[in-house]
Design a protein around this nucleic acid. Structure first.
Lengths: 159, 159
DNA sequence: ATGTAATGTTGTCATTGACAACAAAACGCG
DNA sequence: CGCGTTTTGTTGTCAATGACAACATTACAT
């Protein structure tokens, strides 16, 4: 009678999201998890997590920066960044030199190995970006990038 | 000469993101963190985390569902969902009845208190949505929602 | 009937975010 | 100059989360 088994099976397959469908944060979260899982899988050979990779990129783009500056730019808390840098310094991919102008802060630089490790990591990250871009489509990815950046500035101020 | 102090101060204020600017995942992550921080702050009076709230919404929309079905729909792992539901059952906002058709699975329902708690939580969540919508602008938020949903289906399949 | 798969539970570990306390150094202001 | 305040980096601790393994119970396939 009206194929009840099939109907029930389908109902169990795909649940209704209910009011969750109206929450922007839910979809942002799901997309972030999906993207990060692929990134983490791709960067696994370097044993590099997303936060570590972002710190390396910021040191590369701003050599000599202090931990406070890096942390502010990336939204990483002081305590967490200190431990994260301790790990990167032991590899050793990052050098912490005491800043000449400020005795408290450390000037951060990439070491020789750090530069090479970052170059290899960038290749893996490019594979990740190519994969997600292939799935999303270039125009969808571009529109998303544009919207996310404007959204970020509206919510957090200029980056 | 050329106001070097001002230039240096500005350089320290706003670091260059470098290659990070090309990574979609970075902007998705930052937006997700910002949105969730506001959501968590708004829902704090209910002592309800985003994952708990999403589970309540799914049980409301799909009463009698099994834990496996809820977990699959939300991307929450079995073990984590079991502990999460144990907490919601103790409040007590959720009831776990043994399913008649399957002796292994539990049929999930909202309790009376759960319905009331969810109603109050929805009001707080609406305040959160109103706040972010005000900052983003309705058209920006709508475009984001549209893009995120298509991106989710392209990366994870139909939801 | 028996091996296989699914469901829920518990245990354990790693990562992350958050907060407090602390020492050293810089800064502001009288 | 001196002194209280702020900044910077470090360590400790806790909660939330994701992941994985092991296990008992039940359903399923053949």
């Amino acid at each position: 009678m009206y194929e009840p088994a099939t109907t029930e099976a389908f109902a169990e397959e795909r649940l209704d999201l209910g009011h969750l469908k109206q929450h922007l944060g839910y979809f942002v979260r799901r997309l972030q998890i999906t993207i990060f899982k692929d990134f983490i899988r791709e960067l696994a050979p370097m044993r590099l997590r997303p936060a570590q990779y972002s710190v390396l990129l910021l040191i590369e783009a701003n050599p000599g920066s202090s931990q406070a500056a890096i942390g502010r730019a990336l939204g990483i808390e002081r305590a967490r960044l200190a431990r994260l840098l301790h790990d990167l310094e032991e590899r050793p991919w990052v050098e912490r030199r005491s800043a000449s102008s400020d005795g408290r802060s450390h000037a951060l630089f990439l070491s020789r190995e750090g530069v090479k490790a970052l170059a290899r990591s960038k290749k893996l990250a490019a594979r990740h970006e190519a994969y997600t871009t292939q799935l999303l489509g270039a125009e969808c990815r571009g529109a998303l990038m544009q919207l996310l950046r404007t959204a970020g500035t509206r919510l957090n101020g200029p980056t």
